[in-house]
Amino acid sequence: MLTIQILIALALGLVCGKLYPTAPLWESVDTITLVALYALLFFIGIDLGRNRQIWQQIGTYGWRILLLPCAIAAGTLAGGALAGWLLAMPVREALVASAAFGWYSLAGVMISQMGHVELGALAFLVNLLRELLAFVLIPLVASHLGNIPAIAPGGATTMDTTLPLIAEVTDSEGVVAALISGAVLSALVPVLIPLLLGT
C-alpha cells in the first residue's frame, strides 16, 4: 500500500514536471522538499522523545551498532565493483560512483569539481537512482528480510530523506540504528571519494 502510494507520488511529480517544466512552482521545489523534510524529522524527533526506553536500549547495542554502516559500506562497494566489471568500465570509477551511498547532491558536485565531469554526472545519477529505488525497496526489504537489512538500501540517506519511511516500516530501534548508520556513512563520503579517486 505504502509502496504504491510512493510510486504514485513519484510518478505524479515526474509527469507534472515533464508537462509543465517552466511552472513557477518548481523554482521553490527545493524549499518545498526542505520544509517537508524538516517537518518529517521534527515528527520523528517527537516520536523518539516520547519513547524513552529506546535511549536505554540503544546503550545495549554498544559499539556493535557500528557493524551496520560497515556492512552497508562493504556491500555497496562490493556491488559497485561487480557492476563496474559487468559493464566493462574501470572498476575504480564504478567504486567512486558507488561511494556516495545515495548522497547524490554531494557526489555530483564533489566529483565534478575534482575535474571528473562525466564521472560526476554518473555518480549523481547512480545516487539519485539509489535514493529513488530505496523508497520503493525499503518497505519490501523490511517485510521480507527484517528491519536491519531494510536500512541498507538507504545508505547515507537514512539519517534524513529515507528516515521517515524507515520510521513507518520498522520500529523505534530501526530508526535509531538508521540514524546512526546514516550519520556514519555520510561522514565517510567526503573521505572515501577523494581516496578512491586517488587525488
Binding site: 557493524l67 551496520l68 556491488g79 559497485g80 557492476a83 564504478a94 558507488s98 529505488l133 526489504v141 541498507a152
Partner: peptide
C-alpha cells in the same frame, strides 16, 4: 550504467547486512 551500478550497490548492501544482522 547508473541503474546497473545503483541496483548492484543496493543488492550488495542488503545482502551483506542480511548476513551480518
Amino acid at each position: 550504467r547508473a541503474l546497473v551500478i545503483s541496483l548492484a550497490t543496493i543488492l550488495g548492501s542488503v545482502l551483506v547486512t542480511a548476513i551480518t544482522a
